[in-house]
Amino acid sequence: MTDEYLRVEAYDCPAPTCAAPAGSPCRTASGWVAVQYHAARCQLVPSSSQVTSVPMPHVRRPGTFWTWLPCAAAVGAEPVAHVRIGYARAETIHHSFDAQHDSLTAAGVTRIFLEDPSTRAADRPELENAVAVAHEIRASGCAVTLVMDEHKRLGQSIVLARLAEELRTGGIGLQFLSGSLQGIHDPGGVVFTVLAALSDMQREYNRNRVLERLESRRQRGEAVGMRVTDDNMLAAALHLREEKLSLRKIAARLVISKGAKAGQHPSPATVLRMLRKHDESTIAVKSMAACKRESEPCISE
């Protein structure tokens, strides 16, 4: 469930090495935000009595230094207030924030996050900050709405889909002051549902494209994945093969010299592919040389 972590945080953590108060994430003995909530705390939630592991949401920033957070309101309780957070982004350095800032201010938004137009298209640091603040305020019991001038300010539609999915997880509303999506959209509304589905479709599309490229490379006989062999490894493997060693023993004596697996031994399957490729290449070269020798008398005649 998307709000499962809020149910867990409604209780103090009974783990002696944590003892995080209600409203705050669990922490490690070293003082960092844990990657998941302690089982003893999860079991305090009636609906999660059989659940021993609840992952730490991204908004709690697992792995960072732990700090105390305000106690979250009880799940299902009426919001104590309504906070609206604004976000504006200029598409280029030649565009101004003035029009967006004015429209947000006129709509009653007082806290506005401005995205530097020089930021790379794939990065939205101020948007991430706005969402993080919205999650923190929402956890304190206030209703929160993220307000923008127009959905086109986000650029790519997939960015909007991912944003909607993250806001829906935290129960945060989304409002556009103009454009085709103008209006206030509830986290459980149809707009969020459609955008979340679009996000899932985009992830599935990207995954299928990667698998198709890998399969195409396999069919062409190309190596798939990180290359761990080199000429020095091949020379050593050929020498060891001449000594009648098995593939397993050959692999145990070879060492990868570069890349993420530097210092490790290649697998016997990797050694087999390397030697097979060398043998096939050698046979092809010898065949071409033999054909050339056979054709020379014909040419001289």
Rank of each mutant, 00 (worst) to 15 (best):
P16K: 06
A20G: 03
G23E: 11
S24I: 04
R27K: 13
S30I: 01
A34N: 12
A34V: 01
Y37T: 01
H38V: 07
C42T: 08
S47R: 08
S49P: 12
Q50S: 15
T52I: 10
S53E: 14
P57H: 04
V59E: 05
R60S: 04
P62W: 02
P62Q: 06
F65L: 14
W68G: 03
A73V: 09
G76E: 14
I85P: 15
I85K: 07
I85W: 09
H94C: 07
F97Y: 09
D98S: 11
H101I: 08
H101L: 09
D102I: 11
T105G: 04
T105S: 13
V109Q: 05
F113G: 00
P117K: 13
T119Y: 07
A121Q: 08
A122V: 05
E128F: 05
A130N: 02
A132Y: 08
G141C: 05
M148Y: 00
D149E: 13
E165W: 05
L181P: 12
M201A: 12
Y205R: 15
R209M: 10
L211E: 12
D231A: 13
N232Q: 15
A235G: 12
L238Y: 01
R241H: 06
E242W: 11
K244C: 08
K244F: 08
L245N: 09
S246P: 07
L247T: 10
I250K: 04
A251K: 12
A251H: 06
I256N: 02
I256R: 06
K258Q: 08
A262N: 02
A262L: 04
A262G: 02
T270A: 12
M274K: 01
I283Y: 10
A289F: 12
C298A: 14
S300Y: 09
